[in-house]
Design a protein around this nucleic acid. Structure first.
Length: 355
DNA sequence: GAGGCGTGGGA
DNA sequence: TTCCCAAGCCT
């Protein structure tokens, strides 16, 4: 290997952003930041990080909290399994390591929600252990620098890049090396139209010299988008409404939502009213008034297109079905974690009420 | 090992 | 508009 990371580390020290998790050696806070930053940009995660560590400053505080509250702090950030696993891992650390964050790579790797990337990041950044991180940035930087066109999402690609990253690692300062490589990928060696004329290693970059920068890294799989149709029932009952907690292994698990009728296509109002579940939900209630049905909301996820409606329904009595749900005053809805889709509906509704 | 899991931003 | 993505992990 005829190039090392020295000039990338130099670039990092000149260009790095001042971020809160870079001003601490607390493995707990470094861990929290790494989980938040999974598949998430710094700008999106920064405020969440600050609020989260303010409310849950250490392992014991996090482990002692209710999952519902942890999810409240995660609301809107996405990939909610991260929050569930953070809570689970805090409990693991409590019971297995007396609340002291482990300093060993294998032990860190054993925590819920921690894979090879996060274990390498936390052990190198907090304990300077010699493990190279391999994240999306590193794939991109290494594939271009060394001209590797093995697909990064293939079994051989994962192995090849993992070995390359470990060889490339500056064992004298693994934490610095890892941060430098990721920041370099995030700010300089960006996915689209990088400014190679400003790059400190372009002279050594195989992709630059062969004009292949725009074609690296190589990825094979393409996500297939499926449609889902969600018909939510926003029920008005004496200033209160009904919500339920999602418990299935599905999108938004453990978040709250309004009573839901999922269908395989868009439903006209008459189809919704005659749906067996709708009939069951309002069974025995004499006066069920359809106040309004929202326009269809298209909620775009990476792998799903969700078409959702919110039907506002007014009732003056309850029944056995509804009594099994959580009845909540409208003013108290902010105590529960909801998906962005539902939050956006609630924000629109609140604005409408003010008009 | 392929599919599932969120959200928001930029070209 | 449409596409790709952004510091992955789990099953």
């Amino acid at each position: 290997m005829h190039i090392n990371s020295e000039s990338i580390i130099g670039w990092y020290q000149r260009h790095k952003r001042d971020l809160p998790w870079r001003n601490t050696s607390d493995p707990y806070k470094i861990w929290i930041s790494e989980i938040i930053l999974q598949q998430t940009r710094v700008n999106q995660g920064l405020e969440y990080y600050l609020r989260f560590v303010d409310r849950f400053p250490d392992v014991k505080t996090l482990a002692a909290a209710e999952l519902d509250e942890v999810l409240r702090y995660w609301q809107g950030l996405g990939y909610y399994s991260r929050a569930r696993n953070l809570h689970k891992a805090a409990c693991q650390i409590n019971s297995m390591y007396n609340g002291v964050f482990p300093d060993d790579y294998q032990q860190i790797l054993g925590l819920a929600g921690v894979g090879k990337y996060t274990a390498a990041a936390v052990s190198s950044l907090a304990f300077n252990a010699a493990y190279a991180v391999v994240d999306g940035n590193v794939y991109r930087v290494l594939s271009r620098l060394f001209g590797v066109d093995t697909p990064i999402d293939s079994t051989t690609g994962i192995k090849e890049f993992s070995e390359l990253a470990q060889q490339f690692l500056d064992k004298s300062d693994p934490g610095m090396h890892n941060q430098a490589l990721m920041e370099f990928g995030a700010l300089q060696c960006v996915p689209v139209s990088p400014r190679c004329e400003l790059c400190p290693v372009s002279a050594h970059c195989v992709a630059f010299k062969t004009d292949a920068v725009s074609q690296l890294p190589v990825k094979t799989t393409k996500v297939k988008v499926k449609n889902r149709f969600l018909n939510y029932l926003y029920i008005e009952y004496n200033g209160k409404t009904f919500i339920q907690r999602r418990e299935e292994n599905d999108i938004w698990k453990n978040l709250y939502e309004f009573p839901l009728i999922e269908s395989d296509k868009l439903l006209a109002t008459e189809e919704l009213l005659s749906h067996p579940l709708f009939i069951e939900i309002f069974d025995g209630i004499s006066e069920v008034v359809i106040v309004t049905t929202s326009a269809v909301r298209k909620h775009i996820l990476t792998h799903r297109h969700i078409y959702a409606t919110f039907t506002t329904i007014k009732i003056n009595e309850t029944n056995s079905y509804l009594s099994r749900l959580t009845k909540v005053a409208n003013a108290d809805l902010d105590r529960y974690a909801f998906s962005r889709l539902t939050m956006l509906f609630l924000e629109d509704r609140y604005k409408t009420l003010l008009e």
